[in-house]
Design a binder for these strands. Structure first.
Lengths: 194, 194
DNA sequence: ACTTATATTGTCAAATATGAAAATTAATTG
DNA sequence: CAATTAATTTTCATATTTGACAATATAAGT
């Protein structure tokens, strides 16, 4: 009995708003006021449902790892049976396919801040390593004769290029940059042939 | 006559401290108090020599562009006559050669914040494009038969990998990651052969 | 209608961050 | 040492941020 709880939804809304703020203002720039405004609620609501700033940051860390891991795995699940790598590269470099650009901004901001929040750093690290592992798996399935170290090098390079496209995006480089990045990724992948 | 001015040195010290804070706490997380403490002066000193927060941020932008551009060009000046690309890659991926890791953290933080500070964004953009231009120049001197687009792709890929090594560094990935990144860079470069 | 559990709003105090100016101290030159 | 110029410290006001709790409103079940 009693009034039905909206704790789940509110918590989601709040952490979503928090993530959007982090993408825009960075972690330290995301004040409780801003988060509340972004979520369209009073500031005291944040405290009521989640807790103080420390608790909010911790909750964001947990949520981000969960979401990112899920969407990364969803991406690989979604890959069709054939031309998997082609689809993967398209998803990584096509604007607004796969992981959203905002997510990567959040990831960057949290990685930079992970010296102050080691727990978040650990979570993002495990997400990233899993991402790398999935890419490597994909590559070694296609390029069975490639050595493990070659696979590791290309996987890392691929992810690096992928991340950089987003890291540079606030600079409003010409659109051609995204295409160049995609081509660079393919260059790297092709080094695994024969 | 009168007491000798230390404006130059103080200004340097303050902006250095500011940069260190930005690397650690991000731009929004760098309060005047923290910067002052990092510089070992009173907060009012910042105001006296540079101005309010807005002026400080603007000054940091100017300084960062100047410093980064200078050290990037110094790097290319420093390259010997032969094996220039080998030395360049070493400089980029060897820890603590060339541009310091802290500088790149500052660059990342400022790039993320450049939506709020368009002027800083423009400065970093021009630095980055110059960096890319220099790399491209180096590559096309060595690989004269490579097409301009191939050169552009590899230059961008190279810088992306370079930046990512630093972007990921707070995660304390195994040391092997740096080596993998370097190898990935070489893989990319070798695609320009013949 | 009453109870109950929860949502939502309101209020206050403390801590921190910023802005601005006045007052003081220190080094140099004549 | 006196004058001068600039460095440094002191002080005050204001705005923002955060924390904590009280008070009220709302939607269920009985």
């Amino acid at each position: 009995m009693g009034r039905p709880s909206v704790k789940e939804q509110r918590t989601e809304e709040i952490l979503d708003a928090f993530a959007r703020c982090v993408a825009r203002y960075g972690l330290e720039g995301s004040t409780l006021e801003r988060i509340a405004e972004e979520a369209g609620v009073q500031r005291t609501i944040l405290r009521h449902y989640i807790g103080n700033r420390e608790a909010l940051v911790a909750a964001l860390g947990v949520r981000v790892e969960r979401e990112f891991t899920a969407s990364t795995e969803a991406l690989f699940e979604w890959l069709p049976e054939y031309d998997r790598i082609e689809h993967l590269v398209d998803a990584l470099f096509e604007p607004s396919l796969g992981t959203s650009s905002e997510d990567l901004s959040v990831a960057q901001a949290l990685i930079s801040a992970s010296k102050l929040y080691p727990d978040i750093g650990a979570r993002l690290k495990s997400w990233l390593l899993e991402f790398e592992r999935l890419v490597a798996q994909e590559l070694s399935t296609r390029y069975q004769r490639a050595s493990p170290s070659a696979i590791a090098e290309v996987s890392l390079g691929l992810l690096s290029i992928y991340f950089s496209v987003d890291a540079f995006s606030p600079l409003q480089l010409p659109d051609s940059h995204r295409e160049l990045a995609s081509q660079a990724a393919w260059r790297l992948i092709r080094t695994l042939e024969t």
